[in-house]
Write a protein that binds this DNA or RNA. Structure first.
Length: 276
DNA sequence: ATCTATGCCTGGTGGC
DNA sequence: TGCCACCAGGCATAGA
């Protein structure tokens, strides 16, 4: 699914094509993606120009002339640039007609993604963004501010790392990879971790995310990024998707379990529960 | 305050 | 071949 590195890749690609373009029409074959009132969504966006595109956590922020659009790709949302209407395929639910004759088309098989309009100075006060923690790859992240959220959490460390209000940007893939590199069992209860261990986790999260960004993200299953571009971080995965394969560090067979309802891959030898 | 359960969705898969 | 139950899962919301 698109996590921070995939969304970053999408953002950079979109910027190349959209900055300076103007929306001249919006077609909505499946309008439920749009959480703002549909009539006002169209009225406020038509004739607006793309000034910039930003990202926070896994959210895309399209800055238009007078308004901002927040877009979340959820499980498998993708943006495509279409030259002509005959290129539209099934599952393209929101289509922006641009002033150069091309189309920005939002594709989402499972229709989980969302779009909403917010006033330009209210982006970070919006319902979706206001609760988010520091970005997991923020170089200035302060472990002292984050550690209480771990120390007080009697739930598996994996669940805390997936909680976007603690740190934002990690999803199922990069959490598994971060825990492996930190040699921490995904079911370890968060309050058992020392501050140094949490600090190390944050360092490893940044290493994983930065590496993934530099490789254009991860492409597994249907999780291809926008514009049909494949990422290359899947070749760097150490545990995620690798059930039954030997661990690259110790050769132990990688296992798959469920943690907080999510499929979780780990090495039972490298990542042991702490004995307290 | 925190955690768990549910709904949103469709395509792929495995069992029969 | 076809039918069907089940699974994948980020996030908002309701309930415990």
């Amino acid at each position: 699914m698109p996590e921070l590195p995939e969304v970053e890749t999408v953002k950079e690609t979109l910027k190349l094509h959209l900055i300076g373009r103007k929306i001249i029409d919006i077609i909505t074959p499946y309008p439920n993606i749009i959480k703002t009132d549909l009539v006002s969504f169209k009225a406020k966006m038509i004739n607006q120009e793309f000034l910039d595109i930003k990202r926070y956590g896994k959210y895309l922020i399209f800055e238009l002339t007078d308004i901002s659009m927040i877009s979340h790709l959820r499980m498998e949302g993708k943006y495509y640039l279409r030259e002509r209407p005959d290129q539209f395929t099934k599952h393209e639910h929101v289509i922006f007609k641009l002033d150069d004759g091309k189309f920005l088309s939002y594709h989402d098989v499972r229709k989980f993604g969302t779009m909403e309009l917010v006033e330009k100075n209210e982006v970070f006060n919006s319902l979706s963004l206001s609760k988010l923690g520091f970005e997991a790859n923020d170089p200035n992240i302060d472990v002292n501010k984050i550690y209480p959220r771990f120390k007080n959490a009697k739930r598996p460390i994996k669940s805390v790392l997936l909680d976007q209000s603690v740190i934002t940007g990690l999803g199922n893939i990069y959490v598994d990879e971060t825990l492996f590199r930190s040699k921490i069992h995904p079911q370890e209860l968060a309050y058992n971790l020392t501050k140094d261990e949490v600090k190390n986790l944050l360092i490893n999260a940044k290493v994983v995310l930065d590496k993934a960004i530099s490789l254009g993200g991860t492409t597994i299953r249907t999780y291809q990024s926008s514009f049909g571009v494949d990422g290359r971080f899947q070749n760097e995965l150490k545990v995620h998707t690798l059930v039954g394969k030997p661990c690259s560090v110790c050769n132990t067979t990688i296992e798959k379990i469920r943690v907080g309802g999510r499929g979780t891959y780990f090495c039972p030898n490298c990542q042991k529960l702490k004995k307290l």
